[in-house]
Structures are given as structure tokens and as C-alpha cells.
């Protein structure tokens, strides 16, 4: 078996004295889509923050494509091919759509190519290219954020709660795009509260609870227990 694109080993992280990650083990095989599910407060977003370099672990190791990364800054990781679309609206509200897209060229793809790709996937962004991103609808903002995942040709893509606050139809549309990205061979780790939506595009799934990965498996197995985990009362 080839080296996984991402391997997390016994990862611990804390906000002050409150430990949020309590020994996370997780692998994302090359070219695979892994859905990371779990109830609120399980530590999913924190895990993504540590992987993307926004937060420092207290102990444990992260290997990206077999390389041990420690203390790397988010911008360094980003230029190395790790694309993170964080939770919430991850666009610059006071910049126009086109300017947002131009900033996506840091990962090495020329700006003109970024624009072409983004507009061909999302024609709606082309219509609004001079509009400030903050005035777009929530779904359009998320399309813009996703455009970075499309255009930056990432080695690994981290998606955090793409669906937050969006109507189901729009979520479906967004995940169709994520599916297309996956078909081009990009490895994706997707954190999602809508278990079913994420499981539809996933090759593997992992469930987090209480700061640990408590179950991993095929989407079907995991899917059958997710309703229990989320609505069943796991805090």
C-alpha cells in the first residue's frame, strides 16, 4: 500500500487547559475522499485547524505525503499544496469576486487560469465578478470559497462544514462539485454535520467523539450508525 497523503498519529491539542483532541489517529489514503463525522464539540474543526497549521498540537505527529510536518505555518502549507476551506464564509467580504479569485493564485496556478476554471465551473460567479463578495448570497459565497479548491490543484483538500447555514438544494449542488474534484484524483478530508450528504461522495468515513476517532469504516456501515450518534444524544 502506498504512503497515505495524510497520516495523523496520537494527536493531542488543547485550548488553554481544556483538551479538545485526546489522541486522534486518522489516515487519508492518496486519492480518497474521507468523511469525518461526529456531533458538535467532538473536535472535528479543531483537528482541521491543527492539520492546516492554524493551531499547534500539544503532542502527536502529522505526516503529509510521508513527510513529518511540525511547526509549519498555514501559508507555508498552503503553498505546498494543502488547500483548506475553513468553516463559515471563507471569502474576503470587502473584495470583489474577481479579486478573491486572484488571491487564489498563491498556490502557483496563474491568475488567468484560476479565473477561467472558476468561471467555467460556476458561471454565476462570472456574472457577479465585480460585485463585493460580502454581498453575495451564502451559497454563492461558498461557491467562491470552493473555487479555490478547484483551481489551486491541491495535493490534499480539507473542507470544513461546507453546508453550514445553506439550503439543502445548494448543499447538494456544492457537493456535486466536490464529487467532480474528487474524480480528478484529489485527496479530500471533508468535515460535515450532514452525514448523509458527505457519505454520498466518501470512500471512507470516520466518526469523532470526545476528541477521538471512535469508529472508521465504509460509508454504508458508518451511515447506519450516524443517526444514533448525532440525534441520539451524544453531546
Amino acid at each position: 500500500m502506498s504512503i497515505p497523503i495524510l497520516e495523523v498519529v496520537d494527536l493531542h491539542a488543547a485550548y488553554g487547559r481544556i483538551e479538545v483532541l485526546r489522541g486522534v489517529d486518522l489516515r487519508v489514503p492518496r486519492g480518497a475522499v474521507v468523511a469525518l463525522l461526529g456531533p458538535n464539540g467532538a473536535g472535528k474543526s479543531t483537528l482541521l485547524k491543527v492539520i492546516s497549521g492554524q493551531m499547534e498540537q500539544t503532542s502527536g505527529d502529522i505526516h503529509l505525503a510521508g513527510v513529518h510536518v511540525a511547526g509549519a505555518k498555514p501559508d507555508e502549507l498552503a503553498r505546498l499544496g494543502l488547500t483548506t476551506v475553513p468553516e463559515g464564509r471563507s471569502v474576503f467580504p470587502n473584495l470583489s469576486v474577481e479579486e478573491n479569485l486572484q488571491l487564489m493564485s498563491y498556490a502557483g496556478v496563474p491568475a488567468s487560469q484560476v479565473l477561467d476554471t472558476a468561471y467555467s465551473y460556476f458561471p454565476r460567479l462570472h456574472e457577479r465578478r465585480y460585485q463585493l463578495a460580502g454581498t453575495l448570497s451564502g451559497g454563492e459565497q461558498q461557491m467562491l470559497a470552493l473555487a479555490r479548491a478547484l483551481t489551486s490543484d491541491p495535493a490534499l483538500l480539507l473542507l470544513d462544514e461546507l453546508s453550514m447555514g445553506l439550503a439543502p438544494l445548494i448543499v447538494d449542488e456544492l457537493y456535486e462539485t466536490v464529487g467532480q474534484i474528487a474524480q480528478t484524483g484529489v485527496s479530500i478530508l471533508v468535515v460535515e454535520q450532514f452525514a448523509r450528504t458527505a457519505l454520498r461522495i466518501a470512500d471512507y468515513a470516520a466518526v469523532m467523539s470526545g476528541g477521538r476517532v471512535v469508529a472508521t469504516g465504509e460509508p454504508d456501515e458508518i451511515g447506519s450508525i450516524m443517526a444514533d450518534v448525532i440525534l441520539g444524544g451524544v453531546a
Binding site: 492546516s52 492554524q54 505555518k73 498555514p74 501559508d75 498552503a78 503553498r79 483548506t84 475553513p86 471563507s90 471569502v91 474576503f92 488571491l103 487564489m104 498563491y106 498556490a107 479555490r148 489551486s152
Partner: peptide, 8 residues
Amino acid sequence: DLLQLYGG
């Protein structure tokens, strides 16, 4: 923070 995630 977001700029940093963009690689800036």
C-alpha cells in the same frame, strides 16, 4: 487568518 490559508 484566511489570507494565510490562501497561501498569502
